[in-house]
Simulated assay, not measured.
Amino acid sequence: MGFKGSTSDGSLSVAAAAFLADYTNLQVQANRGDPANGVIAFQPTNAGSSRTKGVEIEATLRPSRRFSVSAAVT
């Protein structure tokens, strides 16, 4: 879910988003070493389940045509 907006003159723009992602049988690359020859390789493996949730907010202030300030937080 999110929102994006700006003032009519474009001097301020804001974007915000909230997210929630649930994963089951998540596949990831794992760094595995072979003890016989010491070679390290990436192998796909099942990491089980994962949940990610959070909020992102971005804003840009443009007090003049030649200057702007941006900020973001997650």
Rank of each mutant, 00 (worst) to 15 (best):
M1G: 12
G2T: 00
G2D: 05
F3Y: 15
K4T: 08
G5S: 09
G5K: 08
G5M: 02
G5F: 06
S6W: 14
S6H: 15
S6C: 14
T7F: 12
S8E: 06
D9N: 09
D9V: 03
G10T: 00
S11R: 06
S11N: 02
S11V: 00
S11M: 03
L12P: 00
S13P: 06
V14A: 13
V14G: 08
A15V: 05
A15S: 14
A16Q: 06
A16P: 07
A16N: 01
A18R: 11
F19C: 05
L20W: 15
L20A: 14
A21T: 11
D22H: 09
Y23N: 03
T24L: 00
N25P: 01
L26H: 05
L26C: 03
Q27H: 01
Q27I: 03
Q27K: 01
Q27R: 01
Q29M: 11
A30P: 02
G33Q: 14
G33I: 13
G33M: 12
G33N: 14
P35R: 01
A36H: 07
A36P: 04
A36Y: 07
G38E: 10
G38L: 09
G38S: 12
V39Q: 15
V39P: 12
I40A: 09
I40W: 12
A41V: 02
F42H: 08
F42R: 08
P44E: 12
P44M: 13
P44G: 07
T45E: 15
T45F: 14
T45V: 15
A47W: 01
A47P: 00
G48E: 07
S49V: 07
S50D: 14
S50C: 08
T52C: 05
T52Q: 13
K53T: 05
K53V: 01
G54V: 01
V55T: 08
E56S: 07
E56K: 05
E56D: 07
I57S: 01
E58R: 02
A59R: 02
A59V: 12
L61T: 00
L61A: 05
P63G: 04
S64N: 06
S64C: 03
S64E: 05
R65L: 11
R65P: 00
R65C: 08
R65G: 05
R66L: 13
S68F: 12
A71T: 06
A71G: 08
A72Y: 03
T74M: 04
